[in-house]
Nucleic acid binder design. Structure first.
Lengths: 154, 154
DNA sequence: CGAATTTATTTCAAGCTTAAAACTTCATGC
DNA sequence: GCATGAAGTTTTAAGCTTGAAATAAATTCG
């Protein structure tokens, strides 16, 4: 309320960029969701969870999962419960802390994820195919410098 | 399906960019959702619907709304129903076609949206504040050239 | 030790989201 | 007229998502 942060022109340019960013992201997500559904009979949130677990072979606690994925705790509970039912993931008791459990991919889960991850990379590459490696890298750098954008904090 | 579209290096760069894009978008959305909730007691989907209606003073049919917002028909039905209950929006019968209705902002809805839109632009400007107008414009151009990124079909 | 607080997770209610099925109305062709 | 199909919308079932409340276990500290 007190002060505008930038000129009005810059502000409009920021808004335009945000709407473009949002639109692009939604379109890509829609394609990925559709393909995950038709080709692997699964969903994007499930894929995201599997991807996070895949990056951590030792497993992750529920709160680690939800902070990595930037979603709420309760949300992850439901997704994990369904993945456990499907046998793609397992909850492993932690001896030193009976409140928490460690979530790990099962062998089935690993195999499924590997198949999906290969296809996923291929789809993304196709969707961004008319962006050169340099342009992609450049855009990545710009986004990385937004204070809120970096993936690193945690 | 037959061939990789790019080199493996470019493919990795595309994937990196996509993950960055997704992360940035989610962070911005999280901030906007939180602020809409605490300061205006509403949600992002509702705001999106109001914004679309605001751009079309003559009103929009349900299928126009859902195609503009890139969400399913059934989805819009629910959001509109709740907005109608709140008196922010009204369904107006179309004489020539009894299947469809025209959705319009009420005066209350317009007033509410105007307050929110001003704050929204301010928040976005703040979130992107360390991006110059030129950089924002440049990134916008790059995104606009993705075949899937513009407002066009596929 | 025992009370108070913090940490890890689940449950809950409400709303969002999708795809598919159902329903109603309109348009077309016979 | 009337069947047939298309168009516009709503309903449904299942899953995703959130914030808040509830539960339970660990930690802190008087």
């Amino acid at each position: 309320m007190s002060t505008a942060r930038t000129t009005d022109l810059t502000s409009k340019e920021h808004l335009r960029l945000w709407l473009r960013l949002l639109g692009t992201t939604r379109r890509v997500e829609a394609v990925l969701r559709e393909r995950l559904r038709t080709e692997f009979d699964t969903t994007l949130p499930r894929f995201d969870v599997l991807a996070a677990l895949s990056r951590h072979p030792g497993g992750l606690k529920m709160n680690e999962l939800s902070s990595q994925l930037k979603v709420s705790n309760g949300n992850v509970t439901g997704i994990i419960s369904r993945l456990v039912e499907d046998g793609w993931v397992e909850r492993i008791a932690i001896a030193e802390d009976r409140r928490a459990t460690r979530i790990k991919l099962t062998e089935t889960g690993k195999a499924q994820f590997n198949r999906m991850a290969a296809a996923h990379e291929c789809w993304v590459d196709e969707l961004f195919s008319n962006l050169s490696a340099d342009a992609a890298h450049h855009m990545n750098e710009l986004l990385a410098h937004l204070p809120l954008a970096s993936g690193e904090p945690q």
